[in-house]
Design a protein around this nucleic acid. Sequence first.
DNA 1: GTTCTAGAAC
DNA 2: GTTCTAGAAC
Length: 365
Amino acid sequence: MRAHVLYELQPDATLSVCVWCSGDMPTCWLVSEDDRHKPIQLLHYLTHTLGRGPETKIKDQKCSRQQVELTANCNRGFVTVKQLGSNPTSLDDVVVGKGNQVTFKPGQKLYLVNHLYPYTLLFREDSSPVSTPEDRSRAMKRARQGDAQEERDEDNAKIFRISQPSCSTSTVRPQITQSPTAVRVSAAPWNQGLKVSMQDPNMQVYKDEKVVVIKDKFPKARFHWLVLPWDSISSLKALRHEHVELLRHMERVGEHMVQQCHRSNTLHFRLGYHAIPSMSHVHLHVISQDFDSPCLKNKKHWNSFTTEYFIQSQDVIVMLERDGHVKVKDDVSELLKLPLRCHVCHKEQGTMPKLKEHIRLHLLP
DNA sequence: GTTCTAGAAC
DNA sequence: GTTCTAGAAC
């Protein structure tokens, strides 16, 4: 979806320097080899579901509306492909298989279904959506360079992480508008990442005069957004009675995000705040309850969304209206150490892999 | 917040 | 030997 309000760039506007988000990373494009449609951009680490429909112009009933799930790693130059549909998706001549995941690299061909509808990958250093024979030849060249280059890229990434801990750095492109609260950042500490991401137009999926919505950079479910106020409010502790209307607005915007989601009829969502968030700047989580995500990795992740560590938006608003502040229990962090328990049937699971396997059983097919 | 990795658990 | 967790570093 498009942002609802775009601010005009003021001549003296301070341009953000992104140390947290995608910055100078190459952009990733999925190129239809039979020229059915223009290249589709795959955003770094954001799951993109592809199948029959207007986006691909595929009408073939053998192709599911959600045939594959694609997740690009723009830093390392590959895309993971998970087959969701029943009929075979294949990478070159190898069938992926329903539920299986493979790594798709430039030079390879992905056939969406039944060895039809071929796609290739293109990684570009700029984000302009073009697809020329030169691009394709460059993509092929990159592919031919093979694993050795990938290793070098990985090494570069390692070196870069040491000097720039959060991520790559880039000035925001001048044609893109800035919010009124743009900040100058040269090397933000990791816990200031949201302040940077929320200013980045490439991350914004909605904005209005009070709030901005971004996709969580490491989503813990199929759909995971963060609603942030433009006003700098560091945490729940800083909230006062005067913020009630802002929080109500954040909740309404969160509900709006759910409503516009094509899976809102089949997925349950929760809206809430972490009792003690790691990242600075108040943010409302809007998260689908499938918890089907490779970024969901450990007990802290799980318990932060499935115990009372996750405080429902409405409860925060009620507390604020009633008491004028939000009270968080002193020992709330202990909740993060609780045994892993399924959020649907409450059955305890011994390890994260077992929990993740278990919660898949509760997913609709 | 993530990544990395030592060492515990299996 | 492999899997998994948890704590340090960033």
